[in-house]
Design a protein around this nucleic acid. Structure first.
Lengths: 134, 134
DNA sequence: TCAATTGTTTACCCTTCAAGTATAGTTTAA
DNA sequence: TTAAACTATACTTGAAGGGTAAACAATTGA
């Protein structure tokens, strides 16, 4: 019931890039230093954020990372799902074979959790990185 | 970001006991059989539910478990917290030493997560086992 | 073209924790 | 006292989280 460390680091990365001028290229070392993230660990999560379309990367001399969209178009949910995959409160909400009653409409717990999960997901999607600046 | 197996089992146990007449004593074997929970595993989680005041136990011949309160007074949150402890979306919400900005009011991510966590907790508390019957 | 810079990929290690199992012990009714 | 039934503690196994390492690919500029 907790977001993991990689996601937390990613929040910081995206928030930091959001404070930069639009289109600015920031190298990994600068990000790692300012956000207190282990350099090697950063290298593990950045490609994931890149594949998710949240940032773009540029290799070679003078390369680094660039925020791919406007901060108003990136939500906490985008980052969470990029790193951890879809939010699932219970494994019966991933695969109904895990549900003791084999899914709705028979399992009341399943139904209640599904509703809460829907609202939680919406909450995470409501928060945009532009909201977190200043 | 997921409730664990023990909590899921506990939901089933409490829901099952909620279907019984008030004050009924149900032995561990019956619970394990009907709810498809490994007997040994059940013995691990039941004392936790007992200590939390959700059920009471009776030892000896003819003993078993009894729901300690009315199903309308037991929420999903009660069970989650009994098994997993308080809901914390991020470890910076447990101990501020983990927060990159050393806690509110300076860390915007911290504040956003705290709000979402508050609402999530309220959602889990809103669902009572009496709502899940029928 | 070559070398330095910078991101990419893949693989590995270690610790922690979830999930389940095992065993011995305590209480209680009959 | 005996058998039923819960309790306490500890062990095992496998997966996942967190972090590290090294070889590789792309780009720039001298």
């Amino acid at each position: 019931m907790q977001i993991n460390q990689a996601t937390d680091y990613s929040f910081r990365v995206v928030l930091y890039l959001s404070t930069q001028p639009r289109g600015a290229v920031v190298d990994a070392n600068t990000i790692a230093q300012t956000q207190c993230i282990p350099m090697r660990y950063l290298f593990k999560i950045m490609p994931t954020l890149t594949r998710a379309g949240i940032i773009t990367s540029q290799r070679g001399v003078g390369g680094g990372y660039i925020l791919a969209k406007d901060p108003a178009e990136i939500s906490l949910l985008d980052v969470i799902e990029a790193i951890e995959g879809p939010i699932r409160l219970n494994r019966c909400l991933i695969d109904e074979q895990f549900c003791s009653k084999h899914g709705p409409p028979d399992c009341p717990v399943h139904n209640a959790l599904a509703g809460i999960q829907r609202r939680l997901t919406a909450e995470f999607d409501k928060v945009r990185f532009s909201d977190l600046l200043g």
